[in-house]
Amino acid sequence: MRFLSLSIGARALLIAGALLVAGATRADLPADAAINAAAPLQTMQPKVIVNSGRLEWVPYYRDLTAWPTLSHQDRRSTPRPRKVKLDAPVRGDPARGRDLAMRPDKGYCIACHQLPGEEWPGSVGLSLERYKSYGHADELVFQQIFDARAFNPHSVMPPYGTFGILTVEEIADLVAYLQSLE
């Protein structure tokens, strides 16, 4: 096992690393992926036109081409689980953390977890309403968000750090937020 030490300033490197594992090159995309290879946002979405024999395709607002698909021809690997070691205390911003936890384009933790002051939470993950009372170390919480597969290989919680969904600063903000919930 190799040990990599990254300072937070090397954030760009970390994200580039996550993309590298997934293999973000066009040449790797399977032939049956729904894409427009000529567009910057390559991922396409079907649009059904009433009374027409043609299916229209419009650009999807997110580009999803960098991650492995279900295609039998897709030869790309899934990024492997990664363990994180914190060398310094987490000093995130709980208010930003809360925002990240609610936003569908960011953590969207509320899709699966109960959090204070929010209606229609999910019930796939356990309630985080009084998270601080569990008394978990910051490093453990950070790891759970960065890559939950380190604790449970079958976790359905997205590996936010390894997959570059959230930056390490954003994960620090989420840790600060959860540790503020009394």
């Binding site: 990599l4 492997r80 363990k83 070691k85 060398d87 390490v168």
Partner: peptide
């Protein structure tokens, strides 16, 4: 905050 990363 600095991070150490272990990867398989």
């Amino acid at each position: 905050l600095t991070l150490g990363l272990f990867a398989a």
